[in-house]
Design a binder for these strands. Structure first.
Length: 580
DNA sequence: GCCGTTTTCGGCCCGACTGTTTTCAGTCG
């Protein structure tokens, strides 16, 4: 069982307990444990029978350790089974609807045996809700719309889509005089791969108490907003046509820092921070950090003020996940995170020779425009026939062509000749070693699944990286495949072996194929594995996407020295694995 | 259920908005 499954089971149990109106603090413990496990870099299944080691994870105590052991042995836990006798699993889905919390789910079950979204839809159609207490016209309409939305697009939005929507809205808001500072908060600011909804924070003279009404009215009139969800004194919520929900908060200038801190989250980071505040005799809210005894404000204007008053260093938003960043900030040992400008080259690109959209020269110009010192052209090999993948002869000819293009550019950028070879079902590669030996950069990637089990997939990758010419393991988790086809892999085993062999693992920065999540990247770092970030570009515009991947690196606490393509060109080449 | 310069019990984060409530519970972030 992998960590995600443990976390899911515990989170489900927490939801069920909530429906059962269990002890709120017990529920929180299950939630905390689920989050701790989800972000844990050790594989729990390896230590599931060792309560001592389990309890070293913050949020895991005696009871949770027993739960984990039960889950490992039986695939579930007794409490969850017991609750599932009383309730239905489909109720968990019901809680995803806006306005539906545990109390309402429990009530509807008691009153009219509604257990799923389909049940609810039918009940609304049959007007069964109309006579129930607390279900007015508006409430019912909200649920009806919620069901519609849920069916249309349940899920989160990729970060680049969310950011594009944010940029447009921010440009609109900027046009109103007196709105000076406009920033996204929430998971967008934290650089999450996906964003559930958009939080935009606004301040300036137009947000002063006597003027804010006009600014709220202006915000409400944002043309792409199709569905006004809430409108308060300083908050406007609406939905965009894409289904993305947006919250705009208009804040007084003197509490902006507190609000930015608060709405950036994450939730667990904030909870921990507020506990810390209490111990110091303060209370922290979205308005200020204030003394408990007399209510006087200690800090509120900037985030730096607030973290400073709590006795800790300012923490980069990407780190705010309650993964030890607060302790590190207190000890002044926060990492100096890698930055976009540290990246000196992108070494995974395709051209018109296979399935890319641009020529070698066009890719080179785009890379130069981004300020890169080097790049690698790594077109597909023959097994990807649908992309016109190259056979040995063609690959060598293409490499010669790449080197010629480099010469013609007169030293404006270094262009490495490379290839992205395909890993076959048995783990062999589809080009000859003699061909690979001629390449500066060899990326080995999985592109097809053959209905493999987890063990088979792992064996396949392990064999591929034994090939002495493979320098980079391309998209190691194949998360694009994973989402489509339920691909599974023992990633820790592969990364461990890659570290031993000196093979680098690649993290793709392109938003719809971010390969490694922050937890995977942190594991790679802890195992001493080299990491490379690329965009897997099939178009010059893809090169722009590097920033989203860098945010994942930052979320994983990676520093410049942890990422291979922050090195100058020649050092980068010599840092790649050498054939024995 | 977790946790401990209030340590084996008694705490456990904070406030706004909504709808239908005539004083507040439930939901949300």
């Amino acid at each position: 069982m992998d960590n995600r499954t443990y976390a899911q089971l515990l989170a489900e149990t927490a939801d069920l307990l909530e429906i059962d109106s269990g002890d709120a603090f017990r529920i929180r413990s299950y939630r905390r444990a689920a989050e701790a496990i989800d972000s844990c870099t050790i594989q729990l299944s390896e230590i599931a029978s060792d309560p001592k080691r389990l309890q070293e994870i913050p949020g895991i105590g005696k009871g949770m350790a027993a739960n984990i052991r039960d889950m490992e042995q039986t695939g579930t836990l007794p409490l969850r089974e017991e609750l599932l006798k009383k309730y239905r699993p489909s109720m968990l889905q019901l809680m995803r609807l806006p306005g539906m919390g545990p109390k309402t789910v429990a009530f509807l079950w008691e009153a009219i045996q509604v257990a799923s979204i389909d049940d609810l839809e039918a009940a609304i159609a049959a007007e069964k809700l109309d006579d129930l207490p607390r279900f007015g016209k508006k409430q019912i309409e909200k649920l009806r719309k919620g069901i519609e939305e849920y069916k249309k697009n349940s899920g989160r939005f990729l970060i680049d889509d969310a950011e594009e929507a944010a940029e447009k809205l921010m440009a609109y808001l900027r046009a109103l005089p007196g709105l000076d500072v406009i920033e996204p908060a929430g998971s967008l600011r934290r650089g999450r791969e996906t964003v559930g909804d958009l939080d935009i924070l606004v301040t300036g003279p137009a947000c002063a108490a006597d003027k804010v009404d006009a600014a709220v009215e202006y915000t409400v009139k944002y043309p792409p907003a199709i569905d006004l969800l809430a409108k308060g004194q300083n908050k406007v919520s609406f939905r965009l046509r894409s289904g993305l929900q947006v919250d705009v908060r208009l804040l007084p200038e003197d509490s902006y820092g507190a609000a930015l801190q608060y709405f950036t989250g994450s939730k667990m980071h904030n909870v921990t921070l507020r506990q810390r505040a209490l111990k110091k005799g303060y209370t922290l809210s979205e308005y200020s950090l204030a003394r408990i005894d007399d209510g006087s404000v200690v800090a509120s204007r900037t985030e730096q003020d607030i973290y400073g008053a709590l006795g800790i260093d300012w923490i980069a938003p990407e780190l705010r996940e309650n993964n030890g960043e607060i302790e590190a900030a207190e000890a002044h040992t926060l990492p100096r995170l890698v930055e976009l400008k540290d990246i000196r080259g992108d070494v995974h690109m395709h051209t018109t020779k296979t399935d890319g959209r641009n020529t070698i020269e066009e890719m080179a110009e785009a890379a130069i425009a981004r300020g890169y010192e080097y790049m690698a052209i790594t077109d597909h090999s023959k097994n990807l026939a649908m992309t016109f993948g190259l056979n040995d002869e063609e690959a060598l000819a293409h490499a010669a062509r790449i080197r010629q293009a480099e010469a013609e550019l007169g030293g404006r950028i270094r262009i490495f000749a490379g290839i992205e070879v395909d890993i076959l079902s048995d783990g062999a590669l589809d080009l000859a070693d003699e061909t690979l030996a001629q390449m500066d950069v060899v990326i080995a990637s999985v592109h097809s699944l053959f209905n493999m089990t987890e063990d088979e997939m792992t064996a396949r990758m392990l064999r591929a990286i034994e090939n002495p010419y493979v320098k980079i393991l391309g998209h190691p988790t194949g998360r694009l495949l994973l989402r489509r086809e339920g691909y599974r892999l023992n990633l820790p085993a592969v990364v461990r072996r890659a570290a031993e062999l000196g093979v680098a693992v690649e993290h793709n920065a392109y938003p719809d194929r971010l390969d490694l999540c922050d937890r995977d990247l942190r594991m790679a770092k802890e195992m001493g594995c080299k990491v490379i970030i690329n965009t897997d570009s099939h178009h010059t515009s893809h090169l722009e996407k590097m920033r989203y991947g860098v945010e994942q690196l930052r979320r994983a606490w990676l520093e410049k020295a942890d990422v291979l393509n922050t090195l100058p060109a020649m050092e980068f080449l010599s840092a790649l694995r050498k054939p024995a």
